[in-house]
């Protein structure tokens, strides 16, 4: 029963992804590798669409993956399953919110969690980089190392990164620029 498995996987993601939408990315990548439901290409499409459409990015990613795994109902199941654990936890915490947020142990746990989530998302960048910037397809055909690195892609990546850091505009703007550049320059 695909819907039950999907629900179970997304309940786990909702329970263990701490720190917001982007923190679910490493879990989604591992889910694809483990189950074969979707590949790395779909993951990069997923991030692109989730960043550039209305709605919180974490919710958008859950719906996108769920839809591509099991259709319309799959998207609904994945999304609801992902928010279910936090609804339960938050309702429980709400009653003693002040005590929770001033707890020493919560602060201690986050002393370890913040760097860990940074490391996890950095690892996700590596696998996105492999499919997005490196020319894996051509390299696999020819086996030649120079074919792996595309100067055009690498240059575009650098320009994007520098302008994102420098101008700090909305991601939607950068994605729109990239879409136009991709069509005009035939990426």
């Amino acid at each position: 029963m695909i819907y039950l498995r999907l629900a179970w996987e997304f309940v786990q993601i909702g329970l263990f992804a701490v720190g917001g939408g982007m923190a679910t990315l490493p879990f989604l990548q591992r889910l694809g590798e483990r189950t074969g439901w979707f590949d790395q290409q779909l993951i990069t499409d997923m991030i692109a669409i989730s960043e550039s459409t209305p709605g919180p990015i974490g919710i958008n990613m859950a719906t996108f993956v769920g839809y591509n795994t099991a259709g319309v109902l799959g998207g609904i199941v994945a999304t609801l399953a992902e928010i279910l654990p936090s609804i339960i936890i938050l309702v429980l915490v709400s009653k003693s919110l002040a005590r929770f947020s001033s707890s020493r142990y919560v602060a201690y746990a986050f002393y370890g969690l913040r760097p860990a989530v940074t490391g996890l998302i950095a690892a996700a960048v590596v696998s996105v980089f492999r499919t997005a910037v490196l020319n894996i397809g051509l390299y696999q055909q020819t086996g030649l190392l120079p074919d792996l690195i595309s100067l055009k892609y690498l240059l575009f990546f650098t320009i994007m990164l520098v302008s994102i850091r420098k101008y700090k505009k909305s991601p939607v703007l950068y994605i729109a620029i990239a879409a136009v550049a991709g069509i005009v320059l035939k990426f």
Partner: peptide, 8 residues
């Protein structure tokens, strides 16, 4: 191109 942008 969007994928490269997203990576950045």
């Amino acid at each position: 191109a969007i994928a490269i942008c997203v990576c950045a």
